[in-house]
């Protein structure tokens, strides 16, 4: 293994941990599952550090690995049923959620976000939190740009529904 590349990946990994975990949380909706998925991603990245192309974005390479592990988990354990499947009884939970929920509007949005299909949550995370362009998100998710657009519109529409917007 190229020691320089392994060092580069390990160096970059640490600063990406919070964002990897947040992506994992949006997929899994549970803090401990997100932690497991992030750890698996880190181990896989270090194992495959020689596949990382120096000069490209490490964070996006890590995101691709995380997504790949997540999809494989879905396929293998069959606990979830893929894109579009909604598990309404599960809510997004993480340390610090209570602080956010002191704002009524934000609490309402968090609850609605939990109930969205995984594909919509993931697309919103990539574009709104990670700053992917529509084209970049489409490439990452292997879907047409039009699907990215319709997912984001569906996210906004679902979160806006019955939202109390008075000051």
């Amino acid at each position: 293994m190229n020691a320089d590349r392994r060092t580069e990946v390990q160096d970059g990994l640490e600063s990406c941990l919070p964002r990897l975990w947040r992506y994992a949380l949006m997929l899994t909706r549970a803090s401990h599952d997100a932690e497991d998925l992030t750890q698996a991603t880190c181990l896989r990245a270090i194992e495959r550090a020689d596949q990382f192309i120096s000069g490209t974005r490490l964070d996006r390479w890590l995101f691709s690995i995380l997504r790949s592990i997540w999809l494989n988990q879905i396929r293998s354990d069959r606990l979830r049923e893929g894109e579009g499947h909604v598990e309404a009884e599960t809510s997004l939970s993480f340390d610090g959620a209570q602080a956010i929920e002191t704002n009524i509007l934000t609490a309402q949005v968090l609850k609605k976000l939990s109930a969205l299909p995984t594909a919509q949550r993931e697309t919103a995370l990539l574009v709104y939190a990670e700053g992917y362009s529509y084209a970049e998100a489409a490439a990452m998710l292997d879907i047409p740009i039009g699907t990215v657009m319709s997912r984001l519109a569906a996210v906004r529409a679902a979160l806006a529904k019955d939202l109390e917007r008075k000051p």
């Binding site: 975990w21 932690e35 959620a97 956010i100 949005v109 968090l110 976000l113």
Partner: peptide, 11 residues
């Protein structure tokens, strides 16, 4: 706010 809160809450 939620996305920022998640980052702050990451273990």
């Amino acid at each position: 706010d939620i996305f920022a809160g998640m980052l702050a809450g990451a273990p």
